[in-house]
């Protein structure tokens, strides 16, 4: 047995500073999270239940803002435009990204350079991309018009025509975000085991059957996660539209984010805008949860 004086030399586990240390070390981070995440979220929720005039809350209206959303034609249109935009962009990005990833899986001269070049659009600031696309689309001095005139055509109306403006926006998004899809899917393809593919070739499968029976089923979890992540991201698209069209012409490219921005900052309806974004937030949250569940299922396998 140890004597008293000896015992004092040892520090016991789970006592004194040892017990308090974890909380002390958590405190700064916790304070920051509370200050910049939790409080604004709560404030936003509170704002969504109020009516505002000239930027100040004037009345508590309960869930009135939320209910009003569903009879607001502009909101419903913005939601519809957003869903169309997300569905089109993300499916094009998935198909293109998968095709590029499959192509870049082969080893040949210059493949490293090609892979790097393909990723560049993703790392350019979105606003810069939008400005460049506006220069391409502009009907008077834009590159498309110049091209058309050089080949004997007239002015090309992209941003002035509702359908063309929407297609132009999707094209921009596809150009900028296909690389992300490509990157995730290429990493997924590269992590697949090699031997089953050789086994399939010996067993008699041609290129198409190898893709349909092996590559695609094995890539399904990665593809699902990539699509969900990209979908969540696309729901929040703002800067490109803001620079390219500001939602026009008419309401053709007015995504939910633009409509919310207009509501809050142009029309000063802070409470209504808060309710709108909380609603969209819940939609995105639901998507995020499905993404996490997919990830878990991948882990389990």
């Amino acid at each position: 047995m140890r004597t008293g004086t000896q015992a004092r030399k040892y520090r016991l586990q789970g006592a004194g500073l040892d017990l308090a240390l974890p909380y002390l070390m958590l405190a700064p981070g916790l304070t920051i999270v509370l200050g910049v995440l939790v409080y604004p979220l709560w404030d936003g929720l509170r704002a969504s239940t109020r009516a505002y005039r000239y930027g100040s809350p004037v009345a508590d209206v309960g869930l009135q803002n939320y209910l009003h959303l569903w009879s607001d034609a502009q909101f419903l249109n913005a939601l519809w435009v957003t869903v169309k935009f997300v569905a089109l962009s993300v499916s094009f990005e998935a198909v293109l990204g998968f095709a590029l990833a499959l192509f870049c899986l082969h080893e040949f001269r210059g493949i490293r350079l090609l892979r790097t070049v393909l990723i560049i659009p993703m790392v350019i600031t979105p606003v810069v991309v939008a400005i460049v696309f506006r220069l391409i689309y502009a009907s008077d001095a834009g590159m498309l018009t110049a091209l058309s005139k050089a080949t004997g055509g007239g002015e090309v109306q992209i941003l002035g025509n509702p359908l063309n403006a929407f297609i132009g926006l999707v094209a921009l998004d596809v150009w900028e975000w296909t690389p992300l899809m490509f990157l995730i899917l290429l990493a997924g393809l590269q992590s697949l085991p090699h031997e089953p593919f050789e086994a399939a070739r010996v067993d008699g499968a041609g290129a198409w059957r190898v893709f349909a029976d092996l590559t695609f089923p094995m890539m399904r979890p990665v593809l699902a996660v990539a699509i969900v992540l990209r979908t969540i991201d696309a729901f929040g698209t703002f800067d490109q539209v803001f620079v390219l069209t500001r939602g026009g012409p008419g309401e053709a490219t007015r995504l939910i984010s633009i409509y919310g921005y207009d509501t809050a900052f142009k029309f000063q309806q802070t409470g209504y805008a808060a309710a709108l974004f909380v609603t969209i937030g819940l939609v995105v949250l639901a998507l995020a949860f499905s993404a996490i569940r997919l990830l878990r299922r991948v882990d389990a396998s």
């Binding site: 031997e195 086994a199 399939a200 010996v202 067993d203």
Partner: peptide, 18 residues
């Protein structure tokens, strides 16, 4: 390979996981 009329067993078994 598919036109050679052979069957192969791989070191890692190479089963189709899904």
């Amino acid at each position: 390979p598919r036109d050679r009329d052979i069957a192969m067993v791989f070191q890692s078994y190479a089963l189709y996981p899904q």
